[in-house]
Design a protein around this nucleic acid. Sequence first.
DNA 1: CTGAAAGCGCTTACAG
DNA 2: CTGAAAGCGCTTACAG
Lengths: 333, 333
Amino acid sequence: MKDVADRAGVSQMTVSSILNGQGSYRDATKRAVMAAIEELGYTPNLAAKRLASAADNRIGVLLLTPATPYMLAVVTAAVEASGNLAAQLQIERWTSLTDAFLAVRKLLAAGTRGVIVPPPLSASTQLLDMIAASGAIPVSIAPGGAPPAAHSCVWIDDEAATAEMTSWLVGMGHRRIAFITGDPEHASTGFRLEGYRRAMEAAGIDPSDQLVVQGDYKWKSGLEAAEMLLGQADRPTAIFAGNDDMAAAVLSFAHGKGISVPDELSVVGFDDTVLATAVWPKITTVKQPVEQMVQLGAEILLKELQSGRKSPKIVHRQLDFTIMARESAAPPR
Amino acid sequence: MKDVADRAGVSQMTVSSILNGQGSYRDATKRAVMAAIEELGYTPNLAAKRLASAADNRIGVLLLTPATPYMLAVVTAAVEASGNLAAQLQIERWTSLTDAFLAVRKLLAAGTRGVIVPPPLSASTQLLDMIAASGAIPVSIAPGGAPPAAHSCVWIDDEAATAEMTSWLVGMGHRRIAFITGDPEHASTGFRLEGYRRAMEAAGIDPSDQLVVQGDYKWKSGLEAAEMLLGQADRPTAIFAGNDDMAAAVLSFAHGKGISVPDELSVVGFDDTVLATAVWPKITTVKQPVEQMVQLGAEILLKELQSGRKSPKIVHRQLDFTIMARESAAPPR
DNA sequence: CTGAAAGCGCTTACAG
DNA sequence: CTGAAAGCGCTTACAG
């Protein structure tokens, strides 16, 4: 950076300001600096930046293992976000709910000042409270439908999302639409189911045509639900699985059964994880903007950490979901 | 760290030495320091450590998007390794082979001095050469069977692995064992197939009983292969898929078809990614120690970077694979 | 076996 | 609109 400053004929501080888009400077100065950067092939040293910036920039993320595709998306997003924000990221793994609390303790002991809490932990008021009580700041990611009042949160409206997807299916002409619920322990489960019900009702579809099978977000439960739903004579024309893992399982089952998707059966999911596009046909699903959610969560954390406030300002940010129309859904025959 | 030193009545440097296990110090000193750390709840600042350590500690990793489960394992491992080694990690995404080269250029432009190259790029001598030519150091991860002579590499013996798994299946009593190959573009594909063939031959199994179907490591190809293999009258009693994604597809197809796994059909995979345990029944597979491989790769890079050598010392490290016996394989009926 | 001091490459009040 | 200088929290030759 010093070399750049010398070459551009300015001070190091000016280079820093320009690089960070702060303060004011003349256009000519900026051009000179940019040119020098180009010529020298300069690239900032992230470690120095992290060190020189506010001291309180250690954030952590809780990683459920064995990792689901969704969790891996969260972690990758956290890595990118910490790069963008010059934060120090610490990843702590957990497996059972008991060691989730242990993992939090480790994180805190390691100096983490803010923690990104993805589902299903993000809906645990108890865990969020514990983090806050210890003096660190939690930010809840996608806690389902209703953000925790006492803590910051980034979320999408799960209920509206399943409602919209269901209506979309109805609009295509489907009436016998089945729904596979998620893990009852997850807060999102109830909201997603509710959205489905609401849309079905709004479409004036006979409740007896509403086929709801309980799942738990895992592949196996999707398989079992598919067996139940597709084994009977009067099959649904569409199956809405509460997440992509279960949708993928339904897809596979249908294949083996010789039921063509989407010709004879539409299958849709939720989340838009890697699975949705790894599988064939690609799954039509609700995209949760995980990267953006985590990035925003990290920003909230860092801003709060650097504000020096005694008690954190609670911020709730709701983001938009998107229906990703792909190949697994079509009008019924 | 200064506080710890003061409390323990030693210098900061002594604390540093003890923390890093370098130099020599009295046991009593160490105890005093440890006690001070405990009392103060001290935790090292990684950013400072990275900055103060050798300057050349920027390493990068190439991430194929959309990410496969295997790729995500690589990235998570890279994040952990960079934490352990106090290195700066830069992640660059690529999608097609052309932008793989672009991604490398970006990485190099960003100051990366060493790059971890996972499959399928790890077998591309051209890409490895390009990295080396630019003055950075490549380390090839799992390039298949034969490590690139000119570059450092961490690998497992894919051929020996499929041979061992095949023999294990034979030992259970299987004779009609099918094999689904991977993407012909990947170096591992040939080696894995060769291991299967070798073991089948060694078992004295009639070549006409050897069913080889071409796949490409993707789920869809596993599905198609399953259709071909299980659609015919004289079905194999076991299917060895070249990776877990294809094995999962076979599993699902069999389910729909009403073929019970492992009772009527054994299915095994390769890699041991999240998919292997997400699915049901859990897949018996060859575990590739990805975390360890990536950690080792990062270590090789950092050691070389800090050696100050003009031309890098080439190191090839072969690690052991493990057969993970789970629920998808059993003796034939 | 232990320490004083310089340096890693940035950012940030504070001046001008 | 721009700069001099201190400081972030570590590591590392070099001495003793």
